[in-house]
Design a protein around this nucleic acid. Structure first.
Length: 161
DNA sequence: GCCAACGTTGGC
DNA sequence: GCCAACGTTGGC
């Protein structure tokens, strides 16, 4: 086996968070955070099946005055069950989930850096031709909170910083 | 605060 | 398995 075949290429992702709930400043403060509360199967599957420790994450602020990319983070664990699904006191409690067969998984997310400036959504939309029309942020009605970013998209988005 | 878009639920 | 109702997301 060659070294190349045993080393998976680093992947890239975008993860949304409402800054009122958990902002890039919060991540900087704590350093590492279990990405709990994802209750969408597609987003869960990306975390569970696609993410590897060391993958790059674009940290996106949604549902706020200036939505956009505000920082860079990295995947810091493999997927494991989200504890909040078992907690009746949690907003994220899921009575249909069991410890034997947990429904929701998460990864730990580590702070890397804040961007020099926010890359606002309205500016990202102006680059739809470069990013591809299928890039979720430039599509209407997009609600997916975790999705993959290609190396080319990653490079282009960060070049806007 | 409004509302379009979308995912999930549950009756049938 | 269909699909209307409902709840949530998230830009504006």
């Amino acid at each position: 086996m060659t070294a190349r075949s045993t080393t998976a290429r680093r992947r890239y992702w975008l993860m949304k968070s409402e800054p009122n709930a958990f902002s890039i400043d919060d991540l900087e403060r704590v350093g590492i955070e279990p990405w709990n509360g994802v209750r969408n199967y597609q987003a869960r599957n990306f975390m569970r099946d696609g993410m590897k420790v060391g993958d790059g994450i674009l940290f996106y602020h949604s549902n706020c005055a200036v939505p956009g990319i505000v920082g860079v983070a990295s995947v810091a664990s493999h997927a494991y069950p989200d504890e909040t699904q078992f907690d009746p006191m949690s907003d994220y409690y899921d009575p249909k989930s069991t410890r034997e067969e947990p429904r929701w998984q998460l990864v730990d997310v580590a702070f890397e850096r804040k961007l020099g400036r926010t890359i606002p959504l309205d500016e990202i939309k102006q680059h739809a031709d470069r990013l591809g029309e299928e890039f979720p942020l430039v599509r209407r009605g997009n609600r997916l909170s975790v999705f993959p970013v290609t190396a080319a998209q990653w490079k282009h988005l960060l070049s806007l910083e």
